[in-house]
Amino acid sequence: MTAMTLPRIALPRIPLLDRLAIPAAALFLLIALVGPWLAPHDPYQVDLSQALQAPGPGHWLGTDAAGRDILSRLLAGARTTVLSSIVVVVFAAVVGIVVAALAAIGGRWADEILMRVCDIFLSIPGMILALGIAAALGPSLRSTIIALVVALWPPFARLVRAVLRETMASTYVESARVMGVPARRLMARHVLPNSLDSLYVQAALDVSGVIVLMSGLSFLGVGAQPPSADWGAMVADGREFVTTAWWVATVPGIAITLTAVVFGLFGDALRSKLDPTLGDA
């Protein structure tokens, strides 16, 4: 029943990928954290004499139209792209969980109202909603993050609500209710701890989608502003040179795809680790 507004990369289940996904995601996260210090050049140093250099010994991944080192910009941009995607997902998840928990313990009316609000948000495609909000707030990284949180909490709330309902129908929750465990403790000790596994999985999968969405927004110009190194913006910058200097747009494009795939796999790996029903048979 959960409306998927996020692009979801579906991949075949290969045990080896499962085992590699978790260290790979950790590696990408590490790069995002320490990326700027790994950069061989200053990512913001304009040097027109070095413009549009093909990948080679001096610049492993080439340079862009302003002569900036693309590898360095990628490493610097990793922080913006990956960390802000995680921030988006964490905020969207928190809002989603709070709303769903309120709907679950608040009775039928609270549930009805909160879910109709969700539906209103869900009726607008996520990308368009985010684009509108980001544009209205003025293009910046901060507004992209806000816009994406606004666009993403409703599907999360929907999912959490479905999971919570399932957990609430389980016998151990009913037995706690019959024993007189108050609603807040019921939620905190019985329902949430037994529901979080599937939320972790959804969150990990969402990071993958948000990376793509964020880059999309930057590409359209409402995200992080020049000269900051942002993968989506980098792809946009390289558009004009696709035929003459393919690497300017292609390299960040590959970085976006690769990161999205790695986090997608991470989510799947997490799912098979946490969900006993999917077991490895």
């Binding site: 389980s170 016998t171 151990y172 929750v173 037995s175 706690a176 000790r189 019985h190 037994n194």
Partner: peptide, 9 residues
């Protein structure tokens, strides 16, 4: 069902 009535966590 004693397998379902105790909180596994």
């Amino acid at each position: 069902d004693p397998y379902a009535s105790l909180n596994p966590r």
